[in-house]
């Protein structure tokens, strides 16, 4: 047995080395093929905007070609009246209906970099996505700016709207939208009884059990509607929660982000006051999960449910 193991080990190691060498040569060849094309800078002079990661993003004076890589950003772009400037979107972007006419460039987690470059955008709008590092470097080498948003609260969502307004030169419209939204929020806040502190559990997925944590803007949203998220102290934005912990949370209200696999509360909530008193509510996942202007619709719905 020992002999065969060792033989196999070395045989595979040898194979691996051979392949590795071949791969290396291939990669070197490829790298040499790539000629350094430096695109001429377009639309000078350049303005600078700081994004949510603290990066300084250089933009041309006017932006008329942009790609959005998140449904909430597409919604904001349309809301500020710059929908006609969008040349690419993700397959998830279904609102407003006009957005669906725009070409797709993959989904939020797997955008197609070639498609994006072919569309010649001046800026790509990103919501904190994975693989952002390599992605950004590739796009910036093509003179395409990458603007990252990462809203953790309602105020951050307002900030995203202002930022996107600024990018497209629609600051006035953005201010109007934010004013309108804050007015609706103020109205909700004036009507509710904040002292109630209703214990709310927001279920993102039933199995495995995912919920919202301290970094989610939904934690802030619940706090503004007279509730308190029972998972407000759990690290990260969307944690997978231990069922034991979920069991002792005893929420008074359960809100389901309504999607195919999340139509009822997890079995651990069977004996919770929420389930016993029939206080389980569904809110359309597209509305509740996107930090866009429509989030205030979600806020109004949550408030209505909590005050019932």
């Amino acid at each position: 047995m020992e002999k065969t193991t060792r033989q196999f080990f070395f045989a595979s190691l040898h194979l691996f080395e051979k392949n590795l060498l071949f791969l290396l040569v291939f990669v070197c060849l490829l790298a040499n093929c790539r000629t350094e094309t430096v695109n001429p800078p377009i639309n000078l002079p350049i303005r600078e905007i700081t994004d949510d990661l603290g990066r300084t993003v250089k933009l041309p004076e006017t932006v008329d070609r942009a790609v959005s890589l998140a449904p909430n950003l597409t919604e904001i772009v349309f809301a500020v009246g710059a929908g006609d400037k969008l040349v690419g979107r993700t397959s998830y972007d279904n609102f407003p209906p006009e957005a669906q006419k725009i070409q797709t460039v993959g989904d939020t987690m797997n955008p197609n970099i070639e498609n994006i470059i072919a569309l010649k955008p001046q800026v790509v709008l990103v919501s904190t996505a994975s693989q952002i590092e390599t992605f950004t470097r590739q796009l910036e080498s093509q003179n395409i700016a990458v603007f990252v948003t990462n809203p953790n609260s309602l105020d951050d969502i307002y900030k995203s709207i202002h930022q996107i307004g600024e990018i497209f030169g629609k600051t006035e419209k953005a201010r109007e939208i934010v004013e309108g939204l804050s007015k609706r929020v103020a109205e909700v806040e004036s009507e509710i009884n904040k002292a109630k502190n209703i214990k709310v559990f927001l279920q993102i997925s039933k199995e495995p059990l995912f919920t919202i944590g301290e970094d989610s803007f939904l934690t802030d949203l619940i706090a503004r509607t007279g509730g308190v998220s029972v998972t407000a102290n759990v690290a990260t934005a969307y944690p997978k929660l231990s069922k034991e912990t979920a069991f002792v949370l005893n929420p008074d209200v359960i809100i389901l982000s309504e999607s195919e696999d999340n139509l009822e509360p997890n079995d651990v909530f069977k004996n919770s006051p929420a389930v016993k008193n029939g206080k389980v509510f569904k809110i359309n996942a597209d509305i509740i999960s996107r930090p866009s202007p429509r989030i205030v619709d979600a806020l109004e719905q949550i408030a209505r449910h909590l005050q019932k």
Partner: peptide, 19 residues
Amino acid sequence: LDAAKLRSFTFWLLGDLSQ
């Protein structure tokens, strides 16, 4: 599959006893 189902599968594919 759509995004919601994807999430539960990627977790499950890694081996998950929570269910």
